[in-house]
Amino acid sequence: MEKISTEKRWVAEFKRGRTSLEDDPRQGRPKTATTPEIVEKIQDIVLENRRVTVRDLVEALGISLGSVSNILTEVVGLRKLCAQWVPHSLTMEQKHIRMRLSQQHLERFRKDRVDFVRRFITMDETWVYHHDPESKQEAKEWCEPGCSAPKRVHDNARCHKSILTMAKIHELKFELLEHPPYSPDLAPRDFHRFPDLKKFMRGKRFSSNDEVITAVEAYFASLPDSHFRDGIPKLESRWNKCIDVQGDYSE
């Protein structure tokens, strides 16, 4: 209906003597914000602080939000990406181990998907702070076209195993699947459980460890049983990604 109305309007315009298909000039201030000088100023500010926000640029330059967004994305070609936090700068050997184990586990998973999901148990640990004010969105940085998200190494602690945990695993006769070092992206708790926990804790303030423990226990107690199982099937896509990028971190 809208297309027919538009066609009728243009037919009427030409009957009245119109000869051009171009839109008529509109009233209002002409578009002058996208000048070489403004573009250069925006580039200088972004290069100095890649976390600068669009609204910061609006206030600094006195132009509209739409103009700033257009210059950043269309003229300069920038995009804002979250920094990719990685636990370790992987060596070639470590990448090979990650890829080899991903291939082995993926083959086993595909042979008996139901049994694998039913019997798979994973354990890990994470830091929970008394206050963590910066979200992942707030840590975004402006990046040039074709560039991937910047990487930040944040944890080079040695791998460790609890003696009590290992003794219990042996008592229960569990089979241990080999897990590549520095690989939280291949551990369900790290890519499934912990991110949601940290979102829940974001912005909260605690005065003691006991308060933190109480909050974490209350959070896990509120989750349905299905939440604790849902992360296991996601391993298939994680292993595939690891293989596709030759053992490097995929996100």
Rank of each mutant, 00 (worst) to 15 (best):
R55K: 12
I213E: 11
F220D: 03
F109R: 05
A60R: 12
R108E: 10
S148W: 06
P224D: 09
E251N: 15
K15H: 03
W10P: 08
L90F: 02
S162A: 11
H227E: 14
E13Q: 14
V58T: 03
F116S: 05
I163M: 15
D155Q: 13
K80V: 10
L186Q: 03
P133I: 11
P25K: 03
V68C: 00
K161W: 14
N70T: 05
P233S: 11
A221Y: 10
A139C: 14
E40G: 04
G203S: 04
V68N: 00
D44A: 15
P133V: 07
K198R: 08
I38M: 00
I45F: 11
F174T: 10
K31A: 01
R29I: 02
L172T: 12
I38V: 02
P184V: 09
T35Q: 07
V114F: 02
G66I: 01
R16S: 12
A157P: 00
L177N: 13
S67L: 02
H179C: 08
P25R: 02
R229P: 06
F194S: 00
D24A: 04
G203Q: 03
P224A: 02
Y219I: 03
S69G: 10
D132G: 02
E141W: 08
D56G: 07
R158W: 12
D196G: 05
D132P: 07
E37H: 09
E138F: 10
K140M: 12
L177D: 00
I169K: 06
S208Y: 04
R152W: 05
P224L: 04
F116L: 07
N70A: 04
N49L: 05
H192A: 03
P188S: 01
C143E: 11
R205H: 06
K111Q: 13
A12T: 11
H105T: 06
E175Q: 13
V75G: 09
D44H: 09
S237A: 15
R26T: 01
A215P: 06
D155A: 13
R100H: 10
K168R: 13
Q94R: 08
M166F: 13
M92T: 13
L61Y: 08
V11T: 13
V128M: 08
K3R: 15
G62Y: 06
L164D: 12
T165P: 10
Q27N: 13
E93L: 06
V39M: 02
R118K: 15
E144H: 13
K204C: 05
Q246T: 13
K8G: 06
M201R: 00
E59C: 04
M99R: 09
R119M: 06
S250A: 14
V54H: 08
L106F: 08
I169D: 03
V52E: 07
S20C: 09
K136S: 14
K136A: 14
Q43G: 00
E107P: 02
E217D: 08
E134M: 15
C242Y: 03
L65F: 14
V75A: 07
P30S: 05
K161S: 14
A139Q: 14
P150G: 00
A12I: 05
A33R: 07
A187C: 05
E138Y: 14
W85F: 15
A149N: 01
E22N: 11
